[in-house]
Design a protein around this nucleic acid. Structure first.
Lengths: 214, 214
DNA sequence: CCCCGTACCCCCCGAATGTGGGATTGATAT
DNA sequence: ATATCAATCCCACATTCGGGGGGTACGGGG
């Protein structure tokens, strides 16, 4: 399978025509679907089976961000790349949060477009440095609190802690793990001591902020 | 201030010489410090006052990742860029988590190095698509749970919830906010109803996963 | 004017939690 | 072999929570 099948969503006929032609005439890349809007996006994608989706951010009806969110929820492994114009960083950022893996500027030169498609298909995430920086800020923000602590929890303690994070009561954790209520309490005591906390809320907060369950 | 001051940490004399020469002879960029190791990194940085730090990942003594973590904790706004060799994605990724904003391949051509420095100084985050994809995966992972919910908490409810996240008991929250214990309980009850949760652990988990306090 | 949401306060009661002791296994390290 | 430690279980006790009521005051919309 060496041809990358691409589906294109864009309300501008001009873009569809120019990008569509580019894609279908490039060896190794094929246009398998071309749509002016993203309504029923999952049905359309199911019909044309693309390897990569190009999605305009601005579209009438269902906009590209919502379509991306919906499609990404359903098909997390299908890479979606946004099409946008220069300077629309906020919405690009929103799109990335919604599940897009990268984006393309519409006025990019044809080679950049093709490169980006190949890159995405190969598992990359093309983006400009300024967007990457925004992403990085979110990415790093959490590590401030529990940075160096690196607590060593046993496997069983992690199970119990995961239960707490999921909002389960001691009894429910016991049932779920097939152990006794008292054992859960024991584990919790040990966990609290290791984390230096005194209640479940603080334990969960420390767990999530410090990514102790990864 | 149009000259970008760069500090360079690398244990290889060859790299220090070649990169150092490149940096000091380029208009608009200046080398303000050049060190073979990252011990006492914050003192060194305080001494030479760089705008951008270039940090080798591999160094004897304190390695570049730890140095980055320490420096980033102390000076979150100082951009740090890692120096590495091709294929070391895991450690690049770790570095980004530790606070670096991007990285450079050591065998990059000189123009790429200079471009990256300028980009970082301008607020960008240069990285290759494959690293960006890794970052994106972490970035997107959280939003799955509480995506569309977007609960509207009142200002006071957020105060109380913040208290829970900080591990405070009802009584401590009451003291901190200068309201009565019973009022805290009222707020908590309302919060639980809005979040559809039944205990503090679940509330904290939902809050942190869904970013409800931003 | 009345309704609704917000913030604030109060009571009761049963269930859950936090903390302080234990104990017993089995595996692993010394 | 002996110590250590994770994992399992148990009890007792005080405190905290969670859910159910109830209330006042204030302000903005309908």
């Amino acid at each position: 399978m060496d041809t990358i099948h691409v589906a294109l969503f864009d309300d501008s006929k001009q873009i569809r025509d120019s990008l569509g032609t580019l894609l279908s005439t490039t060896p190794g890349i094929g246009l398998c679907g071309c749509y002016p809007d993203a309504s029923n996006v999952s049905a359309k994608v199911a019909a044309c089976k693309p390897d990569v989706v190009l999605m305009d951010i601005d579209m009438p009806g269902m906009n590209g961000i919502e379509a991306t969110r919906s499609l990404h929820t359903e098909r997390p492994d299908l890479p979606i790349m946004m099409l946008t114009v220069f300077g629309d960083e906020d919405r690009v950022y929103e799109s990335l949060r919604a599940g897009a893996v990268g984006y393309l500027l519409k006025n990019n030169d044809p080679n950049a477009v093709l490169d980006a498609i190949r890159e995405v298909h190969a598992g990359g995430a093309p983006m400009t440095p300024s967007i990457a920086r925004k992403v990085m800020q979110h990415f790093q923000r959490n590590d401030l609190s529990a940075d160096a602590e690196h607590v060593a929890l046993s496997a069983r303690e992690k199970d119990v802690l995961q239960g707490l994070v999921n909002g389960l009561s001691y009894k429910m954790i016991a049932d779920k793990l097939g152990i006794s209520f008292e054992t859960v309490r024991s584990h919790i005591k040990n966990i609290y001591e290791k984390l230096h906390v005194h209640n479940s809320a603080e334990a969960v907060a420390k767990t999530l902020k410090g990514r102790l369950l990864e």
